[in-house]
């Protein structure tokens, strides 16, 4: 059965897809935190810079961003491997979305939490780290999970800049064998299998993350 012969290269690609997804999600979550802090800060300069960043990355196609990073930046001396370029592009893009998710989460934490923390003498930074952010993050988890699912599928765009991930492997195999139907169906099924644990995780968070009885305080 020659379909089984397609599986090893596709699974190799799937491994790269997983790496891209996990790494860019982690980087995006960290960078997104800095973005939202800048965006919600009282210092105008940070506000403007982060607003421009968020607008630029949400307002242009990820495909174009990847092209610029991989094909255009070398013109000004910034060279990346295909994998690095894809990782940078995906992470920068994810950060813009994550920062907006964080923002809605932070705004959903009742104002009384800030007041209670202040009333026991907490400084602004401490009350953010210990009181606001943990609650906001919990509120954000279902949305971050959804965003991670989109990110997983967006990694397929890295095929265009020659990253040997799942989609790219599929294209190569299909080009060589003309077995388009079987190969792209296999690619689709692998993406579906990869996304499934994330879906379960989102469902779990949605159930668990609900302490609304304490929130109406």
């Amino acid at each position: 059965m020659d379909l089984l012969n397609f599986l090893p290269p596709l699974l190799e690609g799937a491994w790269i897809t997983i790496q891209l997804t996990v790494l860019s999600l982690i980087l995006g979550l960290i960078l997104g935190l800095f973005l939202v802090l800048g965006n919600m800060s009282k210092i105008k300069f940070f506000k403007i810079i982060t607003s421009i960043y968020i607008s630029a990355f949400r307002g242009t196609p990820l495909l174009v961003q990847l092209m610029i990073i991989y094909f255009a930046l070398p013109d000004i001396g910034l060279m990346f491997t295909a994998f690095q370029a894809a990782l940078i592009g995906l992470a920068l893009n994810e950060a813009a979305y994550v920062s907006e998710i964080y923002r809605s989460g932070i705004q959903a934490v009742p104002k009384g939490q800030t007041e209670a923390a202040k009333s026991i003498g907490m400084s602004n930074s401490k009350l953010f780290i210990r009181i606001i952010f943990p609650q906001a993050f919990k509120i954000c988890l279902p949305n971050i999970g959804n965003s991670a699912i989109i990110l997983l599928k967006n990694t397929s765009l890295a095929a265009v800049i020659t990253v040997g991930e799942l989609m790219h492997r599929g294209e190569l195999l299909a080009g060589a064998t003309f077995r388009n139907m079987e190969i792209f169906l296999m690619v689709a099924v692998i993406y579906w299998i990869l996304h499934y644990p994330l879906t379960l995780l989102v469902k779990y968070f949605e159930k668990k993350g609900d302490y609304s009885s304490a929130q109406n305080a």
Partner: peptide
């Protein structure tokens, strides 16, 4: 504020 305690109408415990 360390010296001045406060108790709120809606408790505002950290959930």
């Amino acid at each position: 504020r360390e010296e001045i305690g406060m108790v709120f109408q809606n408790f505002n415990l950290f959930p």
